[in-house]
């Protein structure tokens, strides 16, 4: 894939998106708060992301980024506040119902099925958002869902290890598989939780290529400590601090904001 070609289509469509009036937000959080006992992991988080928008969430450890993801995907329910996905109030939906509505996420610490092959992992992900979840018929090579699984495996560059047990993949390959699982079905909005953590520079480049190559209609939020990755794959940035939204803006605004530099970059960002 020619990277520059992908980048230019994305720039054009971004411009189109910015130019057009968006009728609804892909993700809209209003006053989302999550208390663990007396501790507020996140408090009063309000943010909205337009369809197709790519947003980075930055913040130091304990800023509440992963808790925010867990509330959005329904791993646990927020203490208060509302969560809307494409206008639909999901606040009290169980996780699997949110996923069936097009929300996806990856996990910071890979949650994969180590005892299964790559193909079976991706097949499960495709199955989870299909009608065949309870099927008692064995999958056949000619099934559309099997073909779809193979497409996804190719899309994250894992075709060579299709029949390998996930537990024997390299760390970087496991991260790529995480992304494949998030792309199964018809995702409309994806939450990436530190996808680049622990990757080598070469693997990071591959990750940036995968993220940049996503179809334009798929928006995402990415939590990322690596500024090089975050600022290359995001068009807007939300800074979190102590469970609250601290700043929002374009990557340049955030990078040049003196408060942010003081707080997060420590002044010495390279």
């Amino acid at each position: 894939m020619a990277r520059s070609a992908i980048a230019s289509t994305r720039d054009r469509s971004t411009a189109e998106r910015l130019g057009s009036v968006t009728t609804g937000n892909a993700l809209e959080l209003r006053g989302v708060t999550k208390l663990f006992g007396a501790l507020a992991a996140i408090s009063d988080v309000t943010m909205s992301v337009r369809p197709g928008e790519r947003r980075a969430v930055l913040g130091s450890n304990g800023a509440g980024k992963t808790t925010l993801f867990n509330c959005v995907t329904g791993d646990f329910l927020p203490t208060s506040g509302t969560i809307r996905l494409f206008g639909e109030d999901l606040t009290n939906f169980p996780a699997h119902e949110r996923i069936r509505r097009g929300l996806r996420r990856t996990y910071q610490i890979s949650l994969l099925f180590g005892g299964m092959t790559v193909a079976d992992n991706v097949y499960l992900a495709c199955l989870g958002v299909s009608r065949g979840r309870f099927s008692l018929l064995r999958p056949r090579p000619s099934d559309a869902i099997v073909a779809r699984a193979d497409e996804l495996i190719a899309a994250v560059h894992l075709a060579r290890v299709r029949d390998t047990l996930v537990s024997s993949l390299s760390y970087g390959q496991q991260r790529q598989l995480e992304i494949a699982l998030a792309l199964a079905g018809a995702p409309r909005f994806i939450l990436f939780d530190e996808p680049a953590a622990g990757l080598s520079p070469a693997e990071r480049a591959e990750l940036v290529a995968i993220l940049s190559g996503l179809p334009d209609h798929i928006g995402y939020i990415i939590i990322e400590h690596d500024m090089d990755v975050a600022l290359r794959v995001a068009e807007s940035v939300t800074m979190m601090h102590n469970g609250r939204v601290f700043k929002e803006g374009t990557p340049e605004e955030i990078e040049n904001d003196p408060e942010v530099q003081e707080l997060y970059l420590g002044g010495g960002h390279g």
């Binding site: 996780a95 699997h96 099925f113 499960l124 199955l127 989870g128 979840r133």
Partner: peptide, 18 residues
């Protein structure tokens, strides 16, 4: 397969839509 997935990793299974 889904049942065995639920056994190994229920949280991930619901994050896949099961």
């Amino acid at each position: 397969l889904a049942l065995q997935g639920v056994r190994d990793n229920p949280r991930r299974m619901s994050a896949l839509g099961f």
